[in-house]
């Protein structure tokens, strides 16, 4: 059974079309990666999935239920949790306070204490900075807090937008390990420019270009990896 089924999604901002006819399915037990050049609709796709934007056409089903056009809070309640790119979170709140608050929905509140322990175990840096205000955190720590908050929502699918954007190589490695560990219990859908991370964390990758899915890479056509990498990440990879 598929956990997420996106069918024929299209739309954009006002008269500007960003997405045209995207169809995607995420099967239970698999992790999906999305990549492609900037400004071609990956973030828009995630925003539509989590209810921040309303698609102008198509449907989105999560866990067999239609969530097209539902409010973000409803979608989070049903278990689809989205962490935004470069999320600044709540500057005047402390780390522990943010994490405690993040278990906001009824479903998330059950077992919040145990989940908080898990988040601290996963990101020991956050445990060291419990009392610190978010605005004083480094970019990497903020990213950890962002993912930690998402985990506090008791996700049944975690959607991540460029989790390693602007991080140092050492932090990237730390985060990659954490994501692999998370993926053992929660399915992931990740947008990422760093292809190494994508290959390490996800089982299947799709290439989004001009608001469409133009290529799919699975374990069976691995040879294409180098080619795709060369095409889109030449300088970085």
């Amino acid at each position: 059974m598929s956990i997420l089924r996106i069918e024929g999604i299209g739309g954009g901002y006002g008269s500007v079309t960003v997405l045209r006819d995207i169809t995607l399915t995420l099967e239970t037990g698999e992790n999906l990666g999305l990549f492609g050049p900037n400004g071609h609709g990956k973030t828009t796709l995630l925003r539509m999935t989590s209810g921040l934007m309303r698609p102008s056409s198509g449907t989105i089903q999560f866990d067999g239920r239609d969530i097209t056009g539902a409010s973000p809070s409803k979608i989070v309640t049903s278990g689809l949790v989205h962490t935004q790119q470069g999320n600044t979170l709540f500057g005047d709140m402390g780390v522990a306070e943010t994490l405690e608050m993040a278990a906001f929905t009824k479903r998330a509140r059950a077992g919040a204490t145990a989940r908080l322990e898990k988040v601290y175990a996963l990101f020991p840096r956050l445990a060291e900075r419990r009392k610190q205000k978010t605005r004083t955190l480094s970019g990497g720590e903020r990213q950890m807090l962002s993912i930690g908050s998402a985990l506090m929502c008791a996700p049944r699918l975690l959607v991540l937008d460029e989790p390693t954007l602007g991080l140092s190589p050492r932090l990237k490695e730390e985060l990659t390990e954490a994501l692999i560990e998370i993926s053992n219990s929660v399915p992931l859908m990740v947008v990422e420019q760093d292809v190494e991370l994508l290959l390490a964390v996800t089982d299947r990758q799709v290439l989004v270009e001009h608001g469409e899915i133009v290529r799919e890479i699975t374990a069976t056509n691995t040879p294409d990896h180098a080619e795709i990498v060369a095409m889109y990440f030449g300088a970085q990879a």
Binding site: L52, P72, S73, V76, T83, F90, E100, F104, A108
Partner: peptide
Amino acid sequence: TNRTPVGRSLRAVGQNQEAAALLGINV
């Protein structure tokens, strides 16, 4: 506003509406 979940959600919405919505807070 500092100790209860609902009170904290008021502050969260005041500081970052989108991030608050993505935690399941009904803005």
